[in-house]
């Protein structure tokens, strides 16, 4: 069992950038650890070198909700991007859209990645910018975002939400279907790849030759 996650409320910070790719969220050279933690200092690693970068501002140090732009987390599959956001203290990210793999990775790690319409994100960005203590609530139970007395609805992946609300382990849940997996395996065709260790030699040159 994990801690069930139903909602999060916290101060927000706005990034004001679109198409933030995973190479910006955590540059590759910082993805060499063997652990899932220890990435806080490398979040937005290249941008953090600039003093005026928003996460370097003292008034935003306790922020736990990130308001981003459009297409946040595009690019690579590196889950380090999610680990780094979590390590820094973020519990939720609001954007108008997300990179596909990033979105999946976020929910798997209890980072509430929520897409809202463009005008709403624009409004939140302005509200956040004018008040560093501005708080946003992301409620996974109700599927709503609440801030400044307004409420907006969002959609979440059904399974991911159910796992988080109940504190369930993804793999445990799948393993309940072990019989179905075994039954499927029994019917797989013989021509599928199966790799026996130590039996493959380097492809001989002929195989790489132009097929003409």
């Amino acid at each position: 069992m994990r801690e069930p996650l139903k909602a999060h409320t916290g101060p927000a910070v706005a990034l004001r950038r679109d198409d933030v790719d995973t190479d910006q969220i955590i540059p590759a050279e910082f993805c060499k650890r063997l652990t899932k933690s220890g990435y806080a200092d490398t979040l937005f690693g290249h941008w953090r070198k600039e003093d005026d970068f928003v996460l370097n501002q003292p008034e935003h140090q306790g922020a736990s909700v990130l308001v981003a732009g459009h297409n946040f987390g595009t690019g690579s599959s590196r889950e380090h991007a999610v680990w780094a956001l979590r390590d820094w203290g973020f519990r939720a990210v609001i954007a108008t859209s997300f990179g596909d793999i990033f979105l999946r990775n976020a929910l798997k790690n209890g980072l509430l990645a929520v897409a809202l319409p463009v005008p709403v994100v624009a409004e939140l960005t302005e509200l956040v910018a004018s008040d560093p203590a501005f708080e946003i609530t992301v409620d996974l139970q109700e599927l709503t975002v609440t801030a400044a007395g307004q409420t907006w609805e969002f959609e979440a992946d059904h399974r991911a939400r159910w796992l988080l609300l109940n504190g369930l382990d993804d793999i445990d849940v799948t393993l309940r279907k072990s019989d179905a997996i075994a039954a499927y395996e029994a019917g797989r065709p013989a021509w599928m790849t199966s790799i026996t260790r130590g039996t493959y030699s380097s492809p001989d040159a002929a195989k790489l030759r132009r097929a003409s």
């Binding site: 899932k36 690579s76 599959s77 590196r78 889950e79 999610v82 793999i101 999946r104 990775n105 798997k108 790690n109 992946d157 399974r159 993804d170 793999i171 799948t174 393993l175 279907k177 997996i181 395996e185």
Partner: peptide, 20 residues
């Protein structure tokens, strides 16, 4: 298709993924 590390673990353990 590409997946994150949580899904890598899921495939190692179950040889499946729950996907839309």
């Amino acid at each position: 298709f590409g997946v994150g590390t949580s899904d890598v673990e899921h495939v190692l353990a179950t040889q499946t993924l729950a996907l839309q």
